[in-house]
Design a protein around this nucleic acid. Structure first.
Length: 574
DNA sequence: GCCGTTTTCGGCCCGACTGTTTTCAGTCG
């Protein structure tokens, strides 16, 4: 069986969990987590690297020992260390680590003293008042464990960015109105524009002794207060999302914002740099001995360790620090850079608005052009257009363009890519359009090789311009289909076509890592709304966030071009 | 288990909150 990077990641994560329960050296545990992280970001398959004789110790966080284990896993499918750990600790016990409040020490205690191996057994032990008998545990903790299990089993989900933003922004407005509050920022993975967020991290600067913590825990949307101290509080909102608030003095805001934005890996990396310079970074500032040398702004902290400001979307310790040091940070694309949108629907298929309404909505978002790209006939469920209906819409667009001012509609189609890779409309029709967007809407479960060939065959088509939602994933609902995205990116360059970054909050497809690969290959990405109503253009900001996480600059994004610059790029074989 | 402009050994980010115990360990972010 071929070993994929995901298999190696799973083995290393499990080893880390099991070692943690055994009370192993925390730095040894971190080494396994770091190695897993390295592989989660690696564009090449480790098995291929080994086959090609690449020295794995060149990878970050991989030394002689782990390189050996990787070779062992690739050649045998097993890791002797993990097999041994399984004999010592039942694998199911690692599940207990996912209960908030239970770390390795307490898991070890309930496992050894009470023979608790599963969440169900833990729940029973707590309910039967056996947990409180353990040394270091008490009645309160037993109660907290019961509550944590109930919350854990009812909601372990992550929230899509668009949902989180609705709760975050109204809470932000509420906090900003509290007397004494100077600044409020929603930090954490929300500020880094992760596609989903697990909780909300909110930072406030306020005068000493302001009532902000009290006002926070009595906020109307709060369901339960988890903890509350003078500078920090945690609550669960009624919608289920955990929200943490941290209050700092105004002159500590920058250092606190840096700390609270993360990622954890980025924070550790910059703190290590500071440490090597004889400095110390914490959420209150950057210090030489006891002397505070900066901290009012994030910029001042970066500057103190010799780095330029690093935008939150890049803070994943994914090479941004090295690039910052070399003065090679990208100037990330911004929402205002977008000149148009090349993927939208109207009432003619499954959209909600007319051509004119969509054009005006796009214009009011500052766009100069909008491609109307209805579904094609194969998608009968949404009344996909056949040639005659499509050509009729083209006439309507031509007519409307003579009336519209400040925006131009482009004639397009979101043509279905059939199972064999053919397009769902004849060339004679496609040739009359400004842009042909292709997409997969069926047969998601083809094998990797068939799915890849299907897409490549479509892209090879002379009129094909843009591959929409390239992996087909729906966040939290549908896994991406199995394709060789590296090959697709490579061939996109060959066939001179483009890949979409679909800004719909359910999709955000391409993934950030693929954006980076496309950028490296010189393939332009198009950030599209896939709007089905006039409201959907607002989603472009999430697409831009994802693009920024993928290190994209203005020049890497197709629809930052003016219409004059765009036309020759999207018109094929004419 | 990794790593090196102080290093091949001895470090490895740092602080808040809780619950338990009574000065601190465990957990979390």
């Amino acid at each position: 069986m071929p070993i994929h990077n995901a298999d190696i990641i799973a083995i290393f994560e499990e080893i880390a969990d099991l070692l943690e329960i055994q009370g192993a050296n925390p730095f040894r545990i971190r080494a396994y987590h770091n190695a897993a992280l390295t592989f989660s970001r690696l564009s090449e398959e480790a098995s291929l690297l080994v086959k090609n004789g690449v020295n794995l110790t060149k990878l970050p966080g991989i030394g002689e020992d782990l390189a050996g284990k990787i070779r062992e896993i690739i050649s045998t499918g097993h890791c002797a260390l993990l097999d041994r750990l399984h004999k010592e600790v039942p694998p199911a016990v690692t599940e207990l680590l996912k209960i908030p409040g239970l770390g390795p020490k307490r898991v070890k205690a309930v496992y050894h003293e009470l023979d608790v191996q599963t969440v169900e057994q833990l729940y029973r032990a707590a309910r039967d008042k056996r947990i409180r008998t353990l040394p270091g545990f008490g009645e309160k903790m037993e109660h907290n464990i019961l509550r944590a299990i109930e919350i854990h089993s009812s909601q372990t989900r992550r929230y899509k960015l668009v949902m989180a933003s609705q709760y975050a922004e109204s809470l932000q407005t509420y906090l900003a109105k509290i007397p004494g509050v100077a600044q409020v920022t929603v930090a954490g993975s929300f500020r880094r524009m992760r596609e989903t967020v697990g909780d909300l991290d909110i930072l406030v600067s306020a005068k000493p002794k302001s009532a902000v913590i009290h006002q926070f825990i009595i906020y109307d949307e709060v369901n339960k207060v988890l903890s509350s101290g003078p500078t920090r509080a945690s609550v669960i909102l009624k919608c289920g999302i955990q929200t943490d608030l941290r209050v700092v003095a105004p002159d500590e805001y920058g250092s606190a914002l840096l700390y609270f934005t993360g990622s954890k890996a980025h924070n550790i990396a910059i703190r290590r740099i500071a440490q090597k310079m004889g400095l110390k970074i914490n959420e209150y500032g950057i210090f030489r001995g006891k002397v505070r040398i900066a901290g009012i702004t994030e910029e001042s902290i970066y500057q103190a360790i010799g780095l330029p400001y690093i935008p939150p979307e890049l803070r994943e310790n994914h090479g941004e620090i090295e690039m910052a040091r070399a003065g090679k940070l990208p100037k990330l694309v911004e929402l205002d850079d977008l000149c148009g949108d090349l993927h939208a629907h109207t009432r003619a298929t499954d959209g909600h608005n007319t051509l004119r309404e969509m054009a005006n909505a796009a214009k009011s978002c500052g766009l100069k052009y909008l491609a109307i790209t209805e579904h094609s006939k194969k998608l009968a469920m949404v009344h996909g257009l056949d040639p005659s209906h499509l050509l009729k819409q083209c006439d309507e667009i031509d007519q409307l363009n003579t009336e519209l001012q400040g925006i131009v509609l482009l004639k397009g189609i979101e043509v279905d890519i059939l199972e064999n890779g053919d397009l769902d409309l004849p060339d004679a029709v496609l040739s009359q359009l400004d842009i042909v967007v292709g997409a997969i809407h069926s047969k998601f479960d083809l094998s990797r090789s068939k799915q890849t060939s299907r897409i490549l065959h479509a892209m090879e088509h002379p009129y094909f311009t843009l591959l929409a939602h390239p992996t087909g994933r729906l966040i939290g609902k549908r896994e991406p289909y199995d394709v060789d995205m590296l090959r697709i990116i490579h061939m996109a360059r060959e066939y001179q076509c483009f890949l979409e970054l679909n800004a719909h909050p359910d999709r955000l497809d391409l993934l950030d890592t693929y954006c980076q690969m496309a950028k490296d290959e010189g393939v332009l990405i198009c950030i599209n709304s896939d709007a089905h109503s006039t409201f959907d253009f607002a989603n472009l900001r999430f697409g831009v966030g994802q693009a920024r996480r993928g290190w994209l600059e203005k020049q890497n994004v197709l629809n930052t071009r003016s219409l004059t610059e765009l036309r020759p790029l999207i018109q094929k074989n004419q």
